[in-house]
Write a protein that binds this DNA or RNA. Structure first.
Lengths: 214, 214, 214, 214
DNA sequence: CATTAACCGAGACGGTACGTCGAGTCTTGGC
DNA sequence: GCCAAGACTCGACGTACCGTCTCGGTTAATG
């Protein structure tokens, strides 16, 4: 197990670790513990363990960690899941910045890839459900993860409206939803068969051109 | 209790009742029990009881019903939730059939109203999470509820493509998602403030016209 | 099942049947039902079913009888067990009446045989426990079964005291216990290996002669 | 609760505690829990709670202890009852060792007193019934409790046979039963009225002298 | 001979207890 | 003070049985 920790090097967001100037005394925390726990959750989810069987009890046991230690770092199962989700976030993709259409496709492609990724797809469906049931957590997840991606889309759209590539009177928020939601829907609800390679392009083109004949 | 049952008249989908010619023996089931249970779940959800506290134990207790009786009708919490969701389904809206745009707006308006409805909004967010965590239930829900609504949208789009109101080479599935997903996203993830009255119209118009300047 | 009823012909004491002049109307009770129930209990006990698994539910099921029918005849499990015990009572043995010693041995032999009998030994140990836990039933059993046997012993002892075969100042009750209790103890607590053929004789002789050297 | 535990100081036989050199890790068991549970059972029995209402559920509830904790220490209700019984065992009485008759009377007097004791009488009748229904438990109880007392009686009898105070050809086992069984019978089956002060003496004398006139 | 009332099997019903498991806390010894 | 282990309280899980109740259907005595 220890080696898998070193190998995967999941970036633990260290939610509970005091970042400030609080003077800490006594034995410092073993960073490997946090990593091991999150790594264990991911492993179990990939192995197909149903969410209902993902008890703190089992997580601690399989991670070879004391239950109290887990609770010292996360307030509960949901807080842990939040960190699990964050450990899956990739860096925002580089945007070419030339064509609005291409940038939007690039952003959607990131979503598509994550929906297909072995880990993410297994995890997203299950962990998101867990988080959504807890409003505070959902809000936090929304703030820190969702909003960032939405903002990226909005920025591209605003740029397009400014350069004349898109309508000037664009409702940025609405069009952002129009473009992102279909991909989100498919990634969350459907099978991976419904995430073909050309989907991002088709969605963006449809949104750009509209349905009405010209 | 009896009166509240009669009063609300939730339509229980009678999941477990044998519809066929199976000869029933022994004391017949009391229909009021099924109604009372579902009604109790809805009441608790409306009262803001978190999903985690919605135990079968509590449901049975508050419905004044034996636990075994609940399990006799539903295989588990998820199966019960499925019926709870079904009890919320409204009839499909009447479509005027004249303008494609108006019909699409009408369909989205139904979704918006349900997202706003006191019951549905409270229930959808929580119960859906429950169901999604169980693949078989999710599939069944998808089959019986989601698919029907998607088909309605597809039918309107096909009609539009046939009458020349929309592009003839329309990708019906894709455009259906483009129109429905934004509303679903908002209804499920966001606050009710994000479901303004004119949203259906704006979504449909955006999808019809596209973003690119003409 | 029906044949086994006819075959064994257990004498059901018909505890609940009104013997008096209560005018009965409607369909009379089916006598075979009572027999079948008691017969089923005995069969299950003989098959080694632990007392804890002897539920009314199971008894009714295995007897092919409705639960309500059982409760129509017996107030509860204990009342049923009482009748089961009574169905095992044999007639009092014939006493030769010549020698006090031989009569006592005859009486003890009856106990010994019952302790050895396949049915009785299996049943006594288990059913008695059940009954003893319910004071009213225990009292009734004591009245109707135990007392009769004790009286028989007392009668023999009194006869012996009168004829000079025994001490004239005999404490009949005490000596009755002295003779009967060892046999009861062994029959109830021990294995059948501790009920050898000559036990009644040895007990009676020991009680008659005493331990002190003469 | 804590004080009542300290006050009564029931000696818990610590059935499940490993006595050996097994290295124990984790939080050690709270000895007060075992005591509190047994004390609660005794209290309930004294209060006349019928055996049938003595559920593990209730015992745990009234002892202020988690159900799982009870099951961690005892395999079931019967195992618990076994320890309850053992907590009632007194030390063997001191025997004067001069007269066989007096020693036997002393031993019987112990039984009589226990039959009269508030706790024991209430408990014995009910708990014994429970235990007897479970062969393994009964065997264990027999081994650890009954056999010891029988051996004490046998030892006295053997001594008497050796010193000439009793017959040399004495059947020790049989005579042991002859003396102990009547007391056991009365203590278990009858009311306390049937345990008069002079009963031990009368039983022993009757057994010693026999019934036949000299 | 039709009525009628109690019988019967089946099984649903509200309860209660079963024995297990997980959540989150606490308490050891050891690092 | 951190850590693994594991005991602790609490409460839900899903099952089984209790004793009662309602069904459809039978069966004998009554009218």
């Amino acid at each position: 197990m220890t080696e898998s920790i070193a190998a995967t090097a999941v970036s633990v967001p260290a939610s509970a670790d005091a970042p400030g100037a609080v003077e800490r005394r006594g034995r410092p925390r073993n960073a490997a513990v946090g990593t091991a726990v999150i790594e264990t959750v991911l492993r179990l989810l990939e192995e197909g363990v149903p969410l209902g069987e993902l008890s703190m009890e089992r997580i601690a046991r399989e991670a070879g960690v004391g239950k109290a230690t887990v609770y010292r770092r996360w307030a509960g199962k949901e807080a842990l899941m939040l960190d699990v989700m964050r450990s899956l976030e990739h860096d925002a993709p580089e945007l070419a910045g030339e064509s609005v259409r291409d940038d939007l496709v690039t952003l959607l492609e990131t979503l598509r890839r994550r929906g297909l990724a072995k880990r993410s797809s297994a995890v997203l469906r299950t962990v998101l459900a867990q988080i959504k049931a807890h409003p505070e957590l959902w809000r936090e997840y929304h703030e820190k993860v969702v909003r960032v991606r939405r903002e990226a889309v909005h920025a591209v759209l605003r740029r397009g409206a400014a350069t004349g590539e898109l309508r000037a009177d664009l409702d940025v928020e609405l069009m952002g939803d129009l473009i992102v939601s279909p991909m989100l829907s498919r990634a969350m609800f459907h099978d991976r068969a419904e995430l073909p390679e050309d989907l991002p392009g088709r969605i963006v083109d449809a949104a750009l051109e509209g349905i009405r004949p010209r």
